[in-house]
């Protein structure tokens, strides 16, 4: 059983991560730890008790985010899952975290190396489920003979383009507004 002190420590750690999530989503990953400490109402030193470096804070945050996405995507590629259902589920997960995810894909190139690897692994979870659905479609000969990585990267490219340039399309949630159009036309592109 955890001591009261351990429970308190974990709660503070979680609170810092949740605050960092919102601050990074709103202000980008260049937001300082001072800014996060103020928003979390903890001392600046407290941040470093839990996360020795800024890099560590970002990596831990992405690890947690990755685990959350993983949990939500799990089970999407069940036996009879249609391609359309899978793509819709993927977008629905992204809509839940749209502001943060948009920041992440816009700034990932400037993040520490380890954070980039976590980002790749985040996409691996998606590609794992996507691949299962695509393999099934290939067996049923319902889609064109296109290499899996081109299918996957084209889908991500499309979604990421709309996200990073959302100002071109809407003031609201671009994924919510364009979900159907993106899914329907992406399927048309790869369907036989």
């Amino acid at each position: 059983m955890k001591t009261k002190r351990q429970v308190q420590k974990e709660a503070t750690r979680l609170h810092i991560l949740e605050t960092a999530y919102h601050i990074y989503a709103e202000e980008g990953f260049s937001a300082t730890t001072n800014r996060i400490a103020r928003a979390a109402s903890v001392s600046h030193g407290t941040i470093f008790v839990h996360f020795p470096t800024v890099e560590n804070l970002i990596v831990c945050l992405l690890d947690d985010f990755n685990a959350e996405i993983n949990g939500q995507l799990h089970g999407l590629s069940e036996k009879n899952e249609q391609l359309e259902t899978f793509l819709e589920a993927h977008i629905n997960v992204l809509i839940r975290y749209e502001a943060f995810y948009k920041r992440l894909i816009s700034e990932v190139n400037g993040l520490p190396q380890e954070a980039k690897f976590v980002f790749i692994n985040m996409q691996s979870v998606v590609s794992f489920h996507f691949n299962q659905v695509i393999e099934r479609c290939k067996k049923e000969k319902t889609i064109k003979e296109i290499p899996m990585h081109i299918i996957f990267n084209s889908w991500l490219g499309l979604v990421h383009y709309y996200l990073t340039n959302s100002y071109l399309f809407t003031e609201g949630s671009v994924l919510t507004e364009y979900k159907e159009e993106l899914i329907c036309n992406f399927i048309k592109l790869i369907k036989k």
């Binding site: 690890d63 380890e114 690897f117 976590v118 790749i120 692994n121 996409q123 691996s124 590609s127 794992f128 996507f130 691949n131 290499p147 899996m148 990585h149 081109i150 996957f152 990267n153």
Partner: peptide, 27 residues
């Protein structure tokens, strides 16, 4: 298996895939 899968599904360069997989497995 993970390296091959990452290359197949995301088209990554082998060295990048190796490092990303090592990072994942280390956790």
């Amino acid at each position: 298996g993970l390296i091959n899968f990452t290359i197949k599904t995301q088209g990554l360069e082998k060295g990048v895939a190796e490092k990303a997989v090592a990072n994942m497995m280390s956790k």
